[in-house]
Design a protein around this nucleic acid. Structure first.
Lengths: 171, 171
DNA sequence: CTATATTGCGCAATGG
DNA sequence: ACCATTGCGCAATATA
């Protein structure tokens, strides 16, 4: 009574499907009334169409007949299903990773841009100071105290509100 | 003779498959010998199991019978197949776009890092110049030519002689 | 509730 | 021969 109607049930119960297929090319119509398990296979079986005892290297046989209900067939299918599942899992995983990569890169971009902004600011400040000096010299005037205290530069070139003049080390 | 064996052929010709399916839960074995087009439907039809004349709010009917070979069924399937195809196409497209985004972001990252490097260099040069001036002033002497005094107490860890005083303005 | 969108799964063809 | 990848259909489920 029981045919062979159990295949995966690995995760969620699915509907077992028995599928009969007709070849588009082979227009062999056969009749096989199956009471319970229905399946049909054309009885056309090219039984090794080779004259010699070769290993059929360039054998021209169209289809070795996808024998249904065959043990080997079922085994093959199951293995393929497994492979398919694995492949798809990896594919999805990869897509996810890619998405995450985008986020990481976006974050890093922001950080880099912030740093650029800061550096630019520092640069502009220093340039301004230079211009002042140049003007002073050009005016031939030499003020005893310069606009900037040399000690500041000696200690640290960072005079921003928060001291953050370090290179990134993470990642 | 020809049943209903043509479905997509939108892109490549595939094998037309007629699939009969049995419900996993309903263990009703029926017999339907079909010569050409085979199909089977369990005659179990839960005819609205409610006692009152309600609108069946939590109606428990399991399946309204997936009528095969029905016109409406076939139509519905075809529409779904189309939707599936569309959805998958978009999904793939999106994945591709994401990958491209990664590349773009990587490029931009490189650009930003290069810029940072350049700005850092400029900054260090300017700072060095400042230190020189400061020393000159501190020495009370003002040489006509800027004579660099190696005596640096200020630990300026860079004395790159390469003159790369570029000034970028774009972006 | 009906229509479309998404998702998991199996099958088959194909590529390596 | 084997596994990996891919396109497609079906059905269940989610979303509108």
């Amino acid at each position: 009574m029981s045919k062979r109607l159990q295949q995966k049930l690995t995760s969620t119960d699915q509907s077992g499907v028995s599928v009969i297929q007709n070849q588009a090319h082979s227009s062999a119509s056969n009749s096989a009334g199956a009471t319970a398990g229905l399946q049909q296979v054309p009885e056309l079986v090219p039984v090794s169409p080779e004259g010699g005892g070769k290993a059929t290297p360039p054998s021209k046989m169209k289809k070795p007949i996808p024998d249904k209900d065959s043990d080997e067939y079922r085994q093959r299918r199951e293995r393929n299903n497994l492979a398919v599942k694995k492949s798809r899992m990896r594919s999805k995983q990869k897509a996810q990773d890619t998405q995450q990569r985008v986020n990481e890169l976006k974050e890093e971009n922001e950080r880099l841009e912030a740093k650029i902004k800061l550096l630019s600011k520092e640069l502009s400040v220093l340039k301004d100071l230079f211009l002042e000096h140049a003007h002073n010299l050009a005016d031939n005037v030499q003020p005893p105290a310069v606009a900037v205290a040399p000690g500041d530069l000696c200690t640290n070139g960072n005079n921003s509100s928060s001291g953050s003049s370090n290179n990134n080390s993470s990642q």
